[in-house]
């Protein structure tokens, strides 16, 4: 995460590396539910991808 942040940090209000890791862990915990909801076993599907992006955006907005 820190390497990714080093390369892509553009916004002054962008998440910190610990915030990014916290979001990663929270979404990882939710993955089984996301897969179940989508009726798939693989993470690499359009439906799960959309849910991951949605969840990451919601967590970002919640942190302000």
């Amino acid at each position: 995460m820190s390497q990714l942040r080093n390369v892509f940090l553009r916004e002054s209000e962008a998440s910190t590396a610990p915030q990014m890791m916290a979001a990663y862990r929270a979404i990882k915990r939710a993955l089984p539910r996301m897969k179940e909801k989508a009726g798939v076993k693989s993470l690499f599907t359009a439906a799960v991808f959309r849910d991951i992006v949605l969840a990451a955006n919601i967590l970002k907005k919640e942190e302000g």
């Binding site: 995460m1 990014m20 979001a23 990663y24 599907t45 359009a46 991951i52 992006v53 955006n57 970002k60």
Partner: peptide
């Protein structure tokens, strides 16, 4: 899988829109 998730979540949190072929 873990790194895929890290990339997608990390990019969203940094204000970018990740695009992947599977989507």
């Amino acid at each position: 899988e873990s790194l895929y998730l890290a990339y997608v979540v990390g990019l969203v949190r940094l204000g970018f829109e990740p695009r992947v072929t599977v989507a």
